[in-house]
Structures are given as structure tokens and as C-alpha cells.
Amino acid sequence: MRIKNHPIISFVEKKEVNFRFDGKNLRGQAGEPIAAALHNAGIKVLRHSPRHNRPRGFFCAIGNCSSCLMVVDGKPNVKICVTPLQEGMRVEYQEGKGDIDAGN
């Protein structure tokens, strides 16, 4: 959910863009991190742990913890909490550790 009224901060609205997540069409704001757009759409589960298959979300939101790795436009292991959203992006769940050569 976006915060509409805030006593201190005036959020500048950015351009709306479309992107695809797990086969669905979603909208977000251009330039915000992919994780922010997903969270706004109510999507908190970003990944499953490789061994025990436990759901994972982000934890630090500043690119430290690697809890939010996803496949973006075919490229695996993208930290979506610090990757800006762009029109037409394809965001997918990542299975396993990802192929290091994919998408490069």
C-alpha cells in the first residue's frame, strides 16, 4: 500500500510502468526498486530457500542480505531491493542458485 499523506515527506509520484511478475501483469512506479513495487502489490514472498523450501522476503532492503534474489529479464540472482523497475520488465521466482551465465 502506498502512503498517501505524510506529515514530513512529500512523495513525488513517478511515471507508472507495467511489468510482468510470475505470469501476471502488475503496475509500479518507474525507478522504484522492484521489491517496492511487489510489496505494494501485496507480494511479500520473493524466494524459497534452496534446501528447506521456506518462503523468504527481503530483510535489509539495501542490498546487503541477499534474501531477495530473483530472476529479472532472464538474469538470475538479481537483488530486487536495489534494482530499479523499468517498463516491461519480467520478474520471476528463482529456482535454486541460478546459472551464472544466464542473461549476461
Binding site: V45, L46, P55, G57, C60, I62, C65, C81
Partner: peptide
């Protein structure tokens, strides 16, 4: 490790 457990910095950032 459940989604929804966030660091305070993450909450602030978001």
C-alpha cells in the same frame, strides 16, 4: 525467516 520479518532499516527505506 518468514517474509514480514524486516530489519528496522528496511522498514524505514520502504
Amino acid at each position: 525467516d518468514l517474509p514480514g520479518v524486516y530489519g528496522a532499516g528496511a522498514v524505514q527505506t520502504l
